[in-house]
Every structure is written in C-alpha cells, then in structure tokens.
Design a protein around this nucleic acid. Structure first.
Lengths: 215, 215, 215, 215
DNA sequence: GATGAATGAGTCTTCATTCAT
DNA sequence: GATGAATGAAGACTCATTCAT
C-alpha cells in the first residue's frame, strides 16, 4: 500500500509538469526534483518516462470513459436527453476538476508515440461512435432529424472538446450551465426557434434555407 | 527567386514528414535526406528546425485566416448564412486539399514550444471571437436565439475542427455536403424541427424538455 | 556458525548465477532474489558483490591448488607418472563435479578487476611452474627429452584447461579415461610410436620429419 | 575512403583500450578521448560500443581463420606436418604481432553478450573440429596412433592458446621456435623417444605405463 | 553557395550500496 | 540481525547545429 501511495505522489507531481510542458519538454530530472525523490527512485516505481505518461493518460481516458453511459431506451428509463445531460455533467465534472489531466489529454497526448497516438485515437473514435449510435437511435425514434449522423457525431464530439478546453482556462466554470449550453446547441443549434418554425417550411431538400428565413 | 524555390522544395518535403511523424519524431536528417540536400544546406535556408516548422504553421494558419471573411451586414450584402457557407467552404477546400498542413495544425502544433503554442492558441481564439461576434450580431438582429455566445462560438469551432480531422481521414470528402451538414448542425442542431416547434413551448426554465416531446 | 551457513547458502546461489551469466550480467538483485534474502542482508555477509565473487574464485583456485601435489622423487615414492595421474584425476574430479565454479574460473574470471586478474594469473603461472619444475626434473632424470620446458609446461596446462572446458560441456565425462588421454598426449603426443621409432632417426636438426615417415 | 580511414583510426585506439581494460572497464569516453574525437563522432562510425567491439573481434577471428588452411593430402601436396607447421606459423605470426587483438580474443571476449559468446565459441569449436578431422585422417593413414581424437583436438587447441597467451607476454617471441615446440609436443609429447621405444611394448591396454618404463 | 563530417550538450537509464525502520 | 526503499554516480546514446573545405 505504501507503494501505491508513493506512486500516486510521483504521478501527481508528474501530471502537473506534463500538463504545463508536455511530454518532450518534461524530463525525468524535473519530475524527481519536484517529487523530491532521487533519480533512481523514479525507476523503482515506473519503467520509464513513457510508462508514467501512459499511466496518466490511461487514468484520464479510463475515468472519462467510465462517466459516459450508453443511452437506455425503454419504459421506466429516464428521458434520453436527461441521460445525455447526466453523461455530459459527469464528464465535465471530471475534466474541469482534473485540469492537468485534461490538458494532457487535449494538448499533449498526440505525436510522440504511435502506440499512444493509436490509443487516444481509439478512445475518441469510440466516443464518436457512441454518439453516432445515439443519433441513429434518435432518427429511428423520430426524435432526431435525418442527417449524416457520423458527421454530426464528430461535430458534437469536437464541440465538447473545444468547450472543455475553453472552460478549463476559466477560473470557476459552471458545469451545469456549460452542460445546458452544449446540450441546447447540439439539439437546437443557434438559430431562433421562431425563425426556424417558418424557415422549416422553406427548407429545401439539401438542407439549405431559402426565402426570407435567413441564418 | 531561385532561393524561394529551394525553400519551397524543402518546405514541401518537411511538411510531409512533420505531418506523418510530428515535430519531435522528425529530425533534420530525415528532412535533408528527403529533400536531397546536404545538412549544411538546410541551415542556409532556415535558421533551424523550429524555424522551418514555424513557417509551415504560419503558412497554414495564414491561409486559413485569409479564407475566413468577416460577415458584412447591409443592403446589397449577401445573406449572412450564405457568407458563413462561403467561409466554411473556402476553409474546407483548403484544409482538405492540404491535408499534411491540416494534420500538422490539428495534431502536431502544440506542446513543444511556448511561443508556437501561443501562436496557435491566438489563431484559434481569434476565430472563436469572429464566430462569437457573428453570433452577437445575430442575437442583435434577432436571428440567433439568446445564449452564451462565447461558449457557442467555441463549440462551433470545435465541431468544425473535429469534422475536418474526421474528413481528412476519408478518401474524397465532399466539401459542399460537409459544409451543409456543419451549417445545419450549427443552426438547427440535431432535433427534429417539428418536435421543437411544440417542444419549444414545453421547455422549462432549466432547459429541460417536458411533455411528450422529448429529445 | 549460523553465519557461515548463511554465507555458504548465498555463495551457492551466487555461484550458479555467476557461472551462467558472468560477473557483469549478474547483479545483486538476482542473487538476493535467488537466495531469498533482502538486499541489505547481502551486505551483512559480504562487503560487496566483488567480495563475494572473489570468495568463489578463491574457493575454486584453492581447492584446485590443494589437489595438485608436488612430485616426490625418491625410494618408496610412487612412480612419477602415477603421481601425475593422481594429480590429474583429483583435479578433474573436482572441476567436473563443481562445474559452475569451473565455468567461473575458465570463462568469467578475467577482465573486470586488475587485482582479481592478477590473482588468477598467478594461480595459472604457479601451476605452469609446477609443471615446468616436473619437466625439468624429468629432463635431469633422462625421462623427458630436452625441450623448452617452459613452453611445454604452458602447452600442457592449456591442453588440460581446454579439455576440462570441453568435458564440462558433456553430460557424464569419464574422469579416468580423460586423465589417460591427457597423460598419453602429454607423454607421447599423437604420432604412432612405431612411426616415431624410425622417424626419430630421420628427424632433422630443425625438427622436420623427412623420408617416408611423415606425420 | 576517408571514412574507412577514420574508422580504422578509432578501431586502433579502441583496440588498445579494450585489450588493456576489457569491455566493461572501457567506456566510450575513454575511446573518444584517446582517438581525439567528439562523443558524437564515435556514433557516426559505429552503432554503439558493442558494435565496435564486435568488429574488433570479427577482425581477429576472421584473420586467424583465414590463416588456418585445411590439410590437403595427395600426390604433389606438401608433407602434412609441413602444412601443420605452416598453419601454426601463420597463426602465430598474426597473434603475436597483433597482441592487443589476441588479448581481446583470449581474455576479454567472453561473458558480456550471449551472441558474441556464441560467436567465439563457434570459432573455437570449428578449429577443434578441423584439428579433429586432421587427426582422424592421420589415424586412417596410420600416421596417428588410435586415440580419442576429439579430446586430443581440444587438448592441442588449448595448448596452442595457452602458449600464445604466454608468448604474448614475452618481448620478442621466436615464432619459428614456438611452432616447432608446439609441433613436437603435439606429435611426440615430452617423453624421451628412447624411453618410449621400450615403453611402448610395456604399455597396457588402458594406456597405462608399467614396468621400469616410467613417466 | 553547397557539402557532410564533426561537435558536445542534454537525457535517459542502470545498479551497487546505504540506512532508517 | 533483517529488511527493502532510497540513493546518486556513472555511462550510453541522440541530434540540432556548426564549420572547414
């Protein structure tokens, strides 16, 4: 158990430095200095620098994944939107609390190791697919308008990522409000509903707006 | 003039390698080998490795910036949505043609140099602000529903980035269709308009949908 | 007494590992793991890694030395050849039983420490001198043909070492037969005696054989 | 060509140091200091320290191998002993000229790398087999007395190795004389021929000498 | 201008040894 | 005595950059 504590300690310090400086500008010397341990001690707990980084990354990706629950449809299940909201809040709660990890995932997790690149890539693709699946289901249930759900899924994923990155730069981001904004945007976009009511009729087959209904 | 040609040549090769391997896994040796020049020659045309990378990045950011025109409102100006569409298409046209540059900007432009990080950061923030300004204008003009336009702007930006990244992995992405999907998503979201018409009324203060119209 | 037992135990395990891997590819971690003691305990029994190795080496060299008795000439003493044979058998018995030690002495005892190098070197030189002395005596007694006894001594020593190394690789080497082969070789060489009888006359000054008797 | 010269230069210096200190007590720093080159330059010419050592070893083993020619029997071919003598002289000429290489092969080539160990092992085994083959041939031709030629081969090989090691410690070893001593020893052993003439008869089945014929 | 051999600072990693418990 | 976590000196290797030709 002592061991786990020590590891966690080193991980905590390393997380900080990796978040600030990225993988390559972080060297083992910085980590051990910050963690106040000897160089050799570092290698008592981690195989190497990459191993430590990998663990941080896995920690983040794992925790985020665990906070995304698949939508359940059926009698007695909560409103799908409610489920989306819950997912979003859980994820936001984590990523905005663990900003260093978030920074690592968003900014420093790509480009220095093909294997880790692949792992991150798979992580995002899985989320995109989850979203796509939800959208497909929504289309089936006539809750979601027909569209290219794959593109939509990626668009939504990207939107969340960017908002998270943005929010992580703020002092005390309001998680609930953030979730609502994202949700509303994803569901209804930015256009005024009134506008769309009339505009909806004017909408042509290829989705373009026409007539006076503009935006 | 000869000089510029030589530079461009080297840049072209380097672009390829940076896109594939990122900044740190690319070394000067690879570049000069690929460009069929001597190591020393490299330094006749570029101050150093970072300088070359910076130039590629500036190229990309500059070209993308140039393709984003500020919305003009007024008599005789085209429909704002049309202007958005044009912006989007111009950008997509470039980033999906210059995939290596896009890859560099999206995946390899962060984390090895505070100054470059800042430059990329500023680039995106400027775009986000452009979008925000447009949204604010839209709100003023009653075309856009009231919302936190800063969050919305970042969300839209992120959506575009992710879709671009996704599309860049496809063989022959259809730019026009992509632009329309993004546009539609940004404007109306994914929910069925019909649903929203009735649902809009049912929407409670905290943004939750109620009644049968759920999504 | 307990202490000596513990030491012996550790020595036994270390011997194994040193024999297999040599000095440098053996680290203290392997030894303590194998001996099921703590790292610190190791240093309660040995000054350091080198010290342990030195002891193993001394063990081997000492035991071998003890098994080589100086030839005694005189009335009532056994046949000198018989004494040689006994020496050889005693040494072979030990080195082929303690193969790990033998491996250490033959293959891993040189090159990482000037002092140990010297000790091994002295050990062999002493044996060579013993052999040389015996040969000199033999020459004096007209049992050994005049020759450069120093070279001969070294040659014999090397022969024994190599045969030992070879035999140590076999499953169950026959010590008696080995001793006889070595003895016969040292005494009479490989040439057919019959051949030599006639050939001896034909031998020219520079040692070359002539006439039909060739070998 | 310039490249080869530089390599040879570094190899020359490294050879010296490896011979004196062995593989492990030699570090790259020593080599580059001695060769008056920068650390990085070293790696321009060699993959790593082991690579350089391997090359030295290969050089030695290759040259020695090349100097050992298989015995040719037949009309017009020189006396087999003459061929042995030539082999021996060629080898001695090389190993006593290139003493550093010899030192490396004899003392520092075992125990730090399984692959190199194997290479050296194979080298010696091949020579032992060559000798054995020659002996078998000799037995067939009734030039060599029946014996365990495998043991004899190893014994002879070991004798040569040890004499070489011994001679390499002398100032100006006489190659011709050395070769003759070794040859004589291998062929006739140390016993006085006269003794053997009578002793041969007294020799019992198991090779033991009996009667007055002693030694 | 072009070349490519040379440079050496900067990093990671290992491992024998120590020492507080 | 026993433990094993901690230490830090030592050494291998990389690679952006320089400079003599």
């Amino acid at each position: 158990m002592e061991r786990a504590v020590r590891r966690a300690q080193v991980l905590r310090h390393a997380k900080r430095i990796f978040a600030r400086n990225g993988y390559h500008r972080t060297n083992v010397g910085q980590i051990v200095r910050r963690a106040r341990i000897a160089r050799g001690t570092f290698y008592l707990y981690f195989d190497n620098k990459r191993d430590l980084f990998e663990e941080l990354l896995a920690q983040a990706l794992g925790e985020i994944s665990a906070r995304i629950r698949r939508l359940r449809i059926g009698p007695g299940e909560p409103d799908p939107v409610e489920q989306l909201r819950a997912n979003l809040r859980r994820v936001l709660e984590f990523v905005l609390r663990e900003r260093d990890l978030t920074d690592i995932v968003l900014n420093h997790s790509v480009g220095f190791d093909p294997e880790l690149d692949a792992r991150v890539s798979v992580f995002y693709q899985r989320i995109a697919q989850d979203i796509k699946r939800s959208l497909d289901l929504g289309v089936e249930m006539h809750l979601v308008r027909p569209c290219d759900t794959e593109i939509a899924a990626n668009c939504i994923l990207g939107g969340i990522k960017e908002v998270v990155a943005w929010a992580a730069r703020r002092k005390r981001p309001a998680i609930v409000a953030l979730a609502e904004e994202i949700l509303a945007l994803g569901l209804t976009g930015v256009a005024r509903p009134a506008l769309l009511e009339s505009g909806a009729k004017a909408r042509t087959a290829d989705g373009r707006l026409s007539g006076e209904a503009r935006l």
